[in-house]
């Protein structure tokens, strides 16, 4: 295959692992056997990480980002405190990340997931599924209409509770940018007690996972708003890239 040209991709900025959670944290018990013992092998991104899946936006349905209505196909609304979750996706250089897919999933207002493995006795809401997806606009903005999920107990230490949270999955434009995180809610007293949140050791990074109430974006007599901005791994863009081997 020597007739092929070098990839015209842009290198990813190496990940700063200090801003991420540690892999091994005894307070989050499942991480004890699911964290590698050996250090990660670090090296510069290759064409594999610099390229990534391309999605056809026509696949998205009109209710895909409306979790209040998407489970019933618009027939009946979910129970719970109605909220707008919205924000901007930027890269490490502060540039908007446009047209990127965002997926979210969450528990219902009682803290129960629609999943075969969730055995919490809080009831399912017949009008709530719990997932949504959208793409960012040209300025990196996204929005979801949903209900605020409930807190719930989980088997870890004897009496651990998850704060209210929404799981968020993002793509960017390269597979090496792939990110899953969780959004928490301002003022939740469980935030400081959560062993999953505290796998992030940098307090400023923890705070950045907590969405503030954004009253200006709320709609009177309809929904409150929470603002969650996200920063994705960026790309290095200097004129000295793509040099031939050995130079």
């Amino acid at each position: 295959m020597s007739n092929r040209q070098p990839a015209e991709t842009t290198p990813l900025i190496p990940r700063n692992r200090d801003v991420h959670p540690v892999a091994y944290d005894p307070n989050y018990k499942t991480s004890v056997t699911r964290s590698p013992n050996f250090p990660l092998l670090a090296m510069e991104s290759t064409v594999t990480e610099e390229t990534g899946p391309v999605f056809n936006q026509n696949k998205l349905g009109p209710l895909d980002n409306n979790l209040i209505m998407n489970w019933t196909q618009g027939k009946a609304p979910a129970v719970g405190e109605r909220i707008l979750m919205h924000g901007r996706v930027l890269d490490e250089s502060g540039r908007p990340v446009p047209n990127t897919l965002i997926e979210i999933w969450q528990a219902n207002a009682g803290g129960r997931y629609r999943h075969i493995k969730d055995t919490y006795f809080a009831p399912l809401d017949p009008n709530f599924g719990g997932c949504g997806r959208t793409v960012t606009d040209e300025n990196g903005h996204y929005q979801f209409l949903t209900i605020r999920p409930g807190a719930y107990p989980w088997p870890n230490r004897a009496n651990d509770w998850r704060p209210m949270h929404i799981h968020v999955s993002l793509f960017g434009s390269g597979f090496g940018q792939r990110l899953i995180t969780q959004m928490y809610f301002q003022g939740d007293p469980l935030i400081d007690l959560c062993p999953i949140l505290s796998t992030v050791k940098d307090r400023a990074q923890v705070d950045r996972l907590v969405a503030p109430l954004d009253l200006a974006s709320s709609k009177p007599l309809d929904f409150l708003a929470y603002r969650f901005d996200i920063v994705m791994r960026g790309r290095r863009q200097t004129m000295f890239e793509n040099k031939p081997e050995g130079m």
């Binding site: 999933w105 997932c131 990110l179 969780q182 992030v200 996972l209």
Partner: peptide, 20 residues
């Protein structure tokens, strides 16, 4: 420059969001 948003575990119910 900005710092990347911290990762969090996908959790046991990841399938709801990614493989409904």
């Amino acid at each position: 420059t900005l710092q990347e948003t911290a990762s969090q575990t996908a959790g046991p119910f990841v399938h709801i969001g990614m493989v409904p």
